[in-house]
Design a protein around this nucleic acid. Structure first.
Lengths: 285, 285
DNA sequence: CCCTGTGATACCCCACAGGTATCGCGCCGT
DNA sequence: ACGGCGCGATACCTGTGGGGTATCACAGGG
C-alpha cells in the first residue's frame, strides 16, 4: 500500500530521465506497452499523476519531480544493500576485509599516497581498493554501494547525507600553457583567466553531452592537459594538481578563487571497523 | 540481478528482527512456507547465506547483519519516496504546502512555540503540522518520509545522514520529588542522582520491552512525571523540561551532565523552499 | 515416549509481469 | 489534402512465480 517496489521505481526513473516511453523501455530491456501499464499502475497506486502526457512526449508533474529524486535515493539504497551484503560475505570468506575508496582521478594525489602508506602500516589494515571515479561522481558511488569511502572536494562535491572529516585546505591555481604571457605572473585573479579570448574554457561532457560555448569539448583530464600544453585552453585546479602538470604547463596561484577543502566522507550509518580505522589514519596525517 | 526488490527486503527484515519465520510471517500477514522460500531465494540471488538456521531458531550471519542495516535504509527510502510524492501532489492541489515537523513530545516546548510563531509571520509560510514522536524516533520519521524536518537533541539523537543547524545549547537538570531531601540543593552531580536507593531510575520501554532493573517500568512521559511526583523515581532532563514540571516536582541543575544541543534537522537531499524558509527562521531566533 | 515448536518440502492455483499486435492521434513532409 | 511517422494507450495472450494448504523432519522437554 505505501511502500513502492524498486522495480516500479526503476521503471519510473527510466521514463523520468528519458521522457520517452519507447527509449525508456529499450533501456530497461523490455517492450514499451508493459512499461506504459506499469507506470499507469504506479500512478493509480499512489493516487497521483506523475507524468503529463502531451501527445508528443512526456513531462514530469511536480509530484513526478519529487519521485524522481526520492526514487533515485531509494533505488541507490537498494542496490547498495545488495552490493554491501555481497561484499560483507566475500570479505568474510577467509580473505581480508576490503575497502573501496572512491577518488577523482588525479586529484589529491599526494594526500592519497600518504594516506595509503600510513594506513597500510596500521596493524590489521584492510585491503584498500582504489575506485577512480568520474567528475564529481564520488557521492553516487557512496550512495549505491560501489564505494565505502571517498575523498571529496568542497565546493565541488556536496557532503550532504554523508559523515565526513576535513583533511586539508588548499588554494587554487590557474594551469596555463608554459609559453603564454600570463604564465610569467606571480599570481592571477579568476577574472583574469576567465574569458581570455585566446584561451576559452574547456567544456566538460555532462551525461555525455557537451554544454555549448566557444571552448574545446573534452571528456577526460588527459585531453584537457594536452589542450593546455598546446596553448588552446586554460584550467583552474586545486593546488595539488601540480602533481600531474606537464613541463609545458605553468601553474599560477589564483588570489580570489575559493579554497578547496578535501574531506574523507562515508555513508552516515556505516559501522565498519576497517573504515573507522582508515578515517582515523586520515585525520592524523 | 543486483538490485533487490523492497518486498524481498521487507521479508528479510521481518525475519531478521523476529529471528523466527513463523512470527515474521504473521507480522507480514502471510503464511510461513512462502516466506521461507522467499528468503532462500534471496540468499540464492545474492549468493550469500544470510541466516544461520539452527534447529531451534535463527541467527544472522555477518552478511545478514549488514543487510539488516542496509535493507532498513533502503526500505525506509522507498516508503519515504511514496509518502513524499503523495504529499507533493496533495500540496499542489490548491492548498498550501504543508511541512511535517517531528518533535519529541514535551521537549524544547518554548523554542518550538517561538519557532512556530516566527515562521507563521513569514510571508507565504507553509502550514506546519506537528508530529509528536516517541523517544528518539525523529530520525526514523525523517528517513521514512513521515516527517520533513525535526527538532533533534544531541547527544540523544544522531544527526548522521541529515543536514542540520544548531539552535540552542542547554544544561541538564535533575527532576526530583519536591519533598525529597536533595530537592533543596542548589546543584547536583550525575553521580549523586544515579543509584539513589530510594529513587531508582525508571525503565523506558524499548520496542515494547522494558529492560530489567529495580526502577518502575514506564512507556510515556506522563507516567514518569507522576512517579516523580509520588516520590518513586528521579529523572534527568534538559533544562527546557522545566516547561512541563508539576508543582510537586523540583528541578536541580546538574553540574557535570553533558550539555544538550537542540538542532533542526532535515533529509540531506531536500529541495523544498518551504523547508529552507523554516530552517532560516529557526536559525534567526 | 509423545507432544510441541521449529524450518523445509511438496503441491496447487491464479494474479500479474511481460510479450505481440494494433489502435488513436498529432505532426510532419510533399 | 493526404499518407507516413512517431508517440503512448489498449487488447489480448502466456508463463512465471508468489502465495496458499498440507505435510514432513527433527530437536527439546515434560
Amino acid at each position: 500500500m505505501d511502500t513502492l517496489e524498486t522495480r516500479e521505481l526503476r521503471y519510473f526513473l527510466a521514463v523520468a530521465e528519458e521522457l520517452n516511453f519507447g527509449r525508456a523501455a529499450e533501456r530497461l530491456g523490455m517492450a514499451q506497452p508493459p512499461l506504459s501499464r506499469a507506470i499507469q499502475q504506479l500512478e493509480r497506486r499512489l493516487g497521483v499523476p506523475l507524468l503529463a502526457r502531451d501527445r508528443r512526449g512526456v513531462a514530469l508533474t511536480e509530484a513526478g519531480e519529487v519521485l524522481r529524486h526520492e526514487g533515485r535515493v531509494a533505488v541507490d539504497a537498494a542496490t547498495a544493500a545488495a552490493r554491501r551484503t555481497r561484499r560483507a560475505a566475500a570479505g568474510n570468506d577467509g580473505s581480508r576485509t576490503r575497502l573501496v575508496l572512491a577518488v577523482k582521478a588525479g586529484d589529491s594525489h599526494d594526500l592519497l599516497r600518504r594516506l595509503l602508506g600510513a594506513y597500510a602500516a596500521e596493524p590489521d589494515a584492510a585491503e584498500v581498493e582504489i575506485l577512480p571515479s568520474g567528475t564529481c561522481e564520488q557521492g553516487k558511488m557512496l550512495r549505491d554501494g560501489r564505494a565505502d569511502v571517498a575523498l571529496m572536494h568542497t565546493p565541488f562535491n556536496s557532503l550532504a547525507g554523508f559523515d565526513s572529516e576535513e583533511l586539508v585546505t588548499e588554494g587554487q591555481i590557474a594551469v596555463l600553457p608554459a609559453r603564454h604571457p600570463l604564465a610569467a605572473r606571480s599570481h592571477l585573479t579568476l577574472a583574469e583567466v576567465r574569458d581570455l579570448p585566446d584561451l576559452p574554457l574547456a567544456r566538460w561532457a555532462r551525461d555525455g553531452v557537451h554544454p555549448p560555448g566557444p571552448g574545446p569539448a573534452i571528456t577526460d583530464q588527459t585531453q584537457l592537459a594536452q589542450l593546455i600544453a598546446l596553448g588552446r585552453t586554460v584550467a583552474v585546479y586545486p593546488d595539488s594538481a601540480r602533481a600531474w602538470l606537464w613541463t609545458e604547463h605553468a601553474a599560477v596561484p589564483l588570489t580570489d578563487a575559493p579554497p578547496v577543502v578535501t574531506h574523507i566522507a562515508w555513508p552516515a550509518h556505516s559501522r565498519s571497523l576497517a573504515l573507522a580505522a582508515l578515517v582515523r589514519t586520515a585525520t592524523r596525517l
